[in-house]
Design a protein around this nucleic acid. Structure first.
Lengths: 163, 163
DNA sequence: ATGGAGTGTTAGCCAAAGCTAACTAATTCG
DNA sequence: CGAATTAGTTAGCTTTGGCTAACACTCCAT
């Protein structure tokens, strides 16, 4: 798949939001370090974001998000978190890989799908009796390449009980 | 989120593969129509793909995929299908939305995550007793905003039976 | 208060992927 | 067969987002 070497507006907003959460004022240098991009690229991006009203930035000064900018950043980050959590906690993908995939996919999840994914995670991970059986079943299936006989047996008992 | 107005190499490969499956020879015009891009853009892209050895194309002639090109196209399409199926059949997202989201995300799913997602779908959708209970439970949860009392009650019985 | 280190900006370049306009090749049909 | 239509290409421009080199501003430490 594709290695992205170009940042989008959303990446800048997300980065600024994350850095701002660190408490310290957000600087061009830090954004540059965070995104792995040179400082002129950041300045360039900030001009656009500023023109779009997403960011407040006076020359040589710190950067802050506008209300809309913060909103957008939060939306991106929500998608990021949902995707990462799905990859890690449902699919059991390694944390670093989950993070990378989430970073790249976060820009492309529609609001509808996000809503459903979030609900799905909520439903699954806040299950009232701890990790659901089926999720354990999936771990088994993934590791052994077949379904867990014990669980299957139990299902069969339930099926016959119902019929 | 982002509206992509620029196609990647992978989009062209996938399009060519899909059109080739239609049986008819693949032309610049068709690729152009399929991707919603002007013909010079296709010619341009084909030059690159051809240089990269992913596509066979002589001037004014039809287009075919090379072995590696076909391989890459298949990889993209596999990601596409897995994502679409997850969105549709697990999250119950509307088909058109699922298709669009899959189209945009397909380029960014790592091999590891794809493998796990595919297994997850296999595990869930080939369940030996039809649609799993938990998936029905999630539908209920999504529509009603709370868990299905009947299922919860049954779980409680099982819990006490185990303890 | 000022000079230098470090931070930020500007100017100007490159590459990718689009586009339109204008051209050339291929094909079809009278 | 040859002209007209369709298909494909080329040239050249635009935008976007990088980059480097060089310049400008800040601010701390002397």
């Amino acid at each position: 798949m594709v290695i992205r070497q170009t940042m989008s507006t959303e990446d800048y907003l997300e980065a600024i939001a994350l850095l701002a959460n660190g408490g310290k004022p957000v600087t061009v240098t830090e954004i540059s370090r965070f995104l792995g991009v040179k400082k002129p690229s950041v300045t360039h991006a900030l001009r656009k974001l500023s023109a779009a009203g997403l960011v407040k930035h006076e020359r040589y000064r710190d950067v802050t998000l506008s209300t809309e900018g913060a909103q957008m950043a939060q939306d991106v980050y929500r998608r990021h978190k949902a995707l990462r959590q799905f990859l890690r906690e449902i699919l059991n993908v390694a944390p670093e890989v989950a993070e990378e995939d989430a970073c790249r996919m976060e820009h492309f999840l529609s609001p509808v799908s996000l809503e459903r994914l979030a609900k799905f995670l909520e439903f699954t991970l806040n299950s009232p009796h701890g990790e659901p059986e089926w999720l354990k079943g999936f771990s088994y299936y993934f590791e052994h390449g077949k379904r867990d006989e014990k669980l299957l047996a139990r299902c069969r008992r339930e099926d016959s009980g119902k019929g």
